[in-house]
Design a protein around this nucleic acid. Structure first.
Lengths: 214, 214
DNA sequence: AAATCTTTCCGTACATGTACGATGCAATGT
DNA sequence: ACATTGCATCGTACATGTACGGAAAGATTT
């Protein structure tokens, strides 16, 4: 069965879109993050500035696309740090996650620090969460810890707790770079150890359901 | 001794500056933090847009001023909730901090989730740390816990840990309102209890100094 | 083949932060 | 008294994200 007209067009559209993403990536690499502007991006691929909006809803959408790429490589990097000890494997997730956030603060801000009234591409947040390779690795490694008896409680609740602690740590470092946190790496390690030590001695019940009045 | 000419002028300047801060505060409350623009702010106080730059280096500087105000009112609210049990007093700090953030998400975003790349008014970050009233209350209550033998370790390190956990919790709730965290109050309480329980069984060494090569 | 509809592309326009420099006034020096 | 200097104020200008609507091209229907 040959490609229908619509699918061919959609494929073409996807190609142009990824061409734009690639150009955006290069712009960021060459001129830094603030060097990425719609006008430069359009000129780079030979379009008028407003044509970019045929492929991305707005600039955030472009940043989301960049972030998706980054998360994929993050997941790869995490998986390059396996361990027989499930707790050490979890530590590796936190460490690589922190390295990603501190190394790509703008992507991190875009994904985790700007209000998500509108998830990208019409995805649900749950879907977005599932589709995030890095988060999938986190949950699976938490499940490994629970299975090994190292942690007790609901894996999703444990993962969410780790997320909150890690996110608090990283976002504070990003937002207040002049605050006396000391060495960022050391601060991250301290918070990571603190959270894991707490989780190893406490039981995490599942998250309560949202009351039905919302 | 009468005021010298310079000091009188400086006082006038400070008055105009705080008038601008007040107007900025109202703008944020009324229209959200994206409603705060230089032009609106200038119009509100009857100046030309560029005149704002006589009192603030840039928009970030305005946000810093708002942050200082917010820290002060937060400290006041905290001190309205004392307790004989030092741990309960600490819990009150966390609860008030969370209530402040969840009750004023726009202000919270402005103050705690907008990048602060440069310390305000040429202050050292250590000075900024000391001058922060909310942090001072938090640290003093942590010190009370340490003195009472309820917590062990460096008070500033413990306080920073609590801040990171609290901030992570609140900023996630603000940023991902549709994520199934469950009831926000319950999630806050869970994270607060988790952090305090961890701190009661762990020792917190002082934060490492930033290496001298920076 | 013609008409209609859909999608893609872009020209124009507006609000924003802020760099640069002019203008006028007050303080200071001679 | 006059010149100079410094500073508060602001007019203009530029790059930016993006809303709006038009134009052009292609697909679909009649």
């Amino acid at each position: 069965m040959p490609l229908s007209v619509q699918t061919r067009r959609e494929k073409q559209k996807a190609e142009l879109r990824s061409e734009l993403v690639e150009a955006a990536h290069k712009l960021v690499q060459e001129e830094g993050y603030e060097g990425l502007t719609i006008r430069k991006l359009a000129k780079r691929v030979g379009y008028a500035p407003m044509s970019v909006y045929s492929y991305f809803a707005d600039k955030q959408d472009i940043l989301f696309a960049l972030a998706e790429d980054a998360f994929e490589t993050l997941a790869q990097r995490i998986e390059e740090h396996p361990s027989d000890d499930p707790i050490e494997a979890l530590q590796a997730v936190m460490t690589e996650y922190a390295a990603f956030g501190l190394g790509n603060p703008n992507e991190y801000r875009t994904v985790f620090m700007t209000e998500k009234t509108r998830p990208p591409g019409g995805k649900t947040f749950a879907e977005m969460h599932e589709a995030n390779p890095a988060m999938k690795v986190l949950i699976s490694r938490v499940e490994a810890c629970v299975a090994a008896g190292k942690l007790k409680g609901d894996p999703r609740a444990i993962a969410t707790t780790l997320w909150a602690v890690g996110h608090g740590t990283i976002s504070l470092l990003i937002t207040f770079p002049f605050y006396p946190f000391g060495d960022p790496q050391a601060f991250v390690k301290r918070m990571c150890d603190f959270a894991l030590a707490g989780l190893m001695t406490q039981d995490m019940p599942p998250l309560t359901e949202t009351p039905p009045n919302c």
